[in-house]
Write a protein that binds this DNA or RNA. Structure first.
Lengths: 135, 135
DNA sequence: AATACATCCTCCAGTCACTGGAGGATCAAG
DNA sequence: CTTGATCCTCCAGTGACTGGAGGATGTATT
């Protein structure tokens, strides 16, 4: 399979070159294989893993959480009560986020529509978001 | 109206005392009035504002964005095309987040249910989340 | 073969948004 | 009048990047 350089991996995943190196430092990404001249090389599996990390980070998972999720999925022969536990814990957080995000969307839609060219005397963004449930 | 001390404000909003002081430093919260002995006092309006900030931060708005949203909502006599602009920009981001979060929830539900007491040979968290659309 | 330019390397300082702690003052209750 | 909670300021540390200096390597062109 075709090996890619760090720049190509960056382009494919939307993760910056420096950030990829940083992820290697903190062991979120494995130590990349190198060419004779010392350049990092990556495979398709790395594209997947990094895409997962990117999405996970964007959704609010910490690097440590992502590490544990990845570690678990890399040992499919182990019992996965732990994975289920992690999953359930995250499920709660994800659900809370979902409901607040939906409220936020609703309010943003209202603001974008109502304020159109007008005044914002009744702009309730802050009121609405302030009252949103906190986890 | 009853004035509250910083600790009470922290309890009511879920924002840490140190963080409230930090928000004052960066002017995300206004300079609090002080008692004779120098302690900060807050009102119900501050509870609202800080709750808004807390939720906004949690939903991925930067402190600068929150500042501009608050500034806009505090000048309801001004035209609010700007507010609508901010709203629309965030709407896109919020929608992307929503769809990825829903996928994440789906996958976490599957993991939590399927793995129960078993093995996780087909645990697809990473595969599923890696393929999720990015912004 | 020489030049040009992109891309890679390491190392390090800076940013954002907190977080926690030291060291000390203030206040409310017993 | 002491104890304990809460407050104050100041400052160092953390997590997760981000950007740049200074230098090596790879590729394409003349």
């Amino acid at each position: 399979m075709a090996m890619l350089m760090i720049g190509e991996l960056a382009r494919r995943t939307g993760v910056k070159v420096n950030t990829i190196r940083f992820y290697e430092d903190i062991a979120l990404m494995p130590k990349a294989a190198r060419t004779d001249s010392g350049r990092r090389t990556y495979s398709e599996a790395d594209v997947k893993r990094l895409s997962f990390i990117r999405n996970g980070r964007d959704l609010g998972f910490s690097t440590e959480e992502l590490k544990s999720l990845i570690a678990l999925s890399e040992h499919p022969d182990l019992d996965c009560g732990a994975a289920a536990g992690i999953a359930r814990r995250h499920l709660l957080a994800v659900e809370a986020r979902l409901s607040r995000l939906m409220l936020m969307r609703w309010e943003l839609e209202r603001v974008a529509a109502n304020c159109e060219g007008g005044r914002m005397a009744d702009c309730q963004v802050i009121g609405a978001i302030a009252d949103a449930p906190s986890h």
